[in-house]
């Protein structure tokens, strides 16, 4: 199997019939690794390589959808990118936001409590005391994948995805906390409702957070959530960043 070395670590390349490539490591990344696959994917995306139509970067794999101009020898071009220099260019100016969340609905709490063997109160207490950062773009435009969930709160996705999840739902899926941005089906376990949308559609990136930005959560009652939504227009206004 072809591979290249980056920071002394092997990046394996699987070629699926010249339709797409999958770049993987032998072991899962640390989600906050300096050379994480999401960051490597960001460099490949920004390099605008002609034989690649799409780049999808997750912390487990990078998928490169190929076009007809791809030749097997082109794989070498991936090895030749100057990752170190490009990663240094990526802005480190992260912003921090506070997001009010109402955890009062029933949602998928039964499943989450059962899987984590923790009470709702314990789980909320953990979440509001942690920093989460945007891990990657993925799923649907505006969806927010957040790093920072402690392993004891990891929760498997649903066996059969829900056909409809409301926008601004806060949910747990595997090792991530996530915020649904637009109406969609979804397989994550919903635990709360955020006060504000993070959508930035139709601009790029399509959500207000960028990779590396930090978000913290505060637990509010349904009345308080309603009051915040009625009086404050956006998360940037709520955080005094307008």
């Amino acid at each position: 199997m072809p591979y290249f070395l980056l920071n002394n670590q092997k990046i394996n390349i699987e070629n699926y019939n010249d339709d797409f490539l999958l770049l993987k490591r032998d072991q899962n990344d640390n989600l906050r690794d300096e050379y994480s696959l999401t960051k490597i994917g960001q460099v490949i995306y920004k390099s605008d390589i002609t034989f690649i139509d799409e780049v999808i970067a997750t912390d487990t794999e990078i998928c490169l959808k190929l076009n007809n101009s791809f030749k097997e020898k082109d794989i070498q071009k991936l090895a030749n990118l100057n990752y170190k220099s490009e990663l240094n260019k990526i802005s480190q100016n992260s912003k921090t936001f506070l997001m009010p969340v109402c955890f009062e609905e029933k949602d998928d709490w039964n499943t989450v409590e059962k899987q984590t063997n923790k009470t709702k109160k314990e789980i909320i207490e953990s979440i509001v005391n942690l920093n989460f950062d945007l891990a990657m773009f993925g799923f649907l435009p505006g969806f927010v994948y957040l790093n920072g969930l402690p392993p004891k709160l990891y929760c498997a996705r649903k066996s059969n995805p829900s056909k409809y999840v409301k926008p601004n739902s806060l949910a747990i899926g595997g090792p991530y906390l996530g915020i649904y941005s637009i109406p969609s089906p979804g397989g994550w376990n919903v635990i709360g409702k955020c006060a504000f949308s993070l959508n930035n559609i139709p601009y790029l990136p399509p959500n207000i957070l960028n990779i590396g930005d930090i978000i913290r959560f505060e637990s509010v009652s349904s009345e308080k959530l309603y009051s915040i939504q009625n009086n404050i227009s956006s998360i940037t206004a709520y955080n005094g960043k307008n």
């Binding site: 797409f20 999958l22 899962n28 799409e54 999808i56 970067a57 997750t58 912390d59 487990t60 794999e61 990078i62 998928c63 959808k65 773009f137 993925g138 799923f139 649907l140 994948y145 990891y154 498997a156 066996s159 059969n160 995805p161 899926g173 595997g174 090792p175 991530y176 969609s184 397989g187």
Partner: peptide, 29 residues
């Protein structure tokens, strides 16, 4: 545990055992 990339045409198999084919408006992970 982790989210994986998907493209239109990918056939996913949820634990229910009934496959889902990702289509043109489908998710990317």
């Amino acid at each position: 545990n982790r989210s994986l990339p998907v493209l239109p045409g990918f056939i996913q198999l949820p634990p229910s055992g009934s496959p889902i084919v990702i289509l043109q408006d489908g998710q990317t992970t």
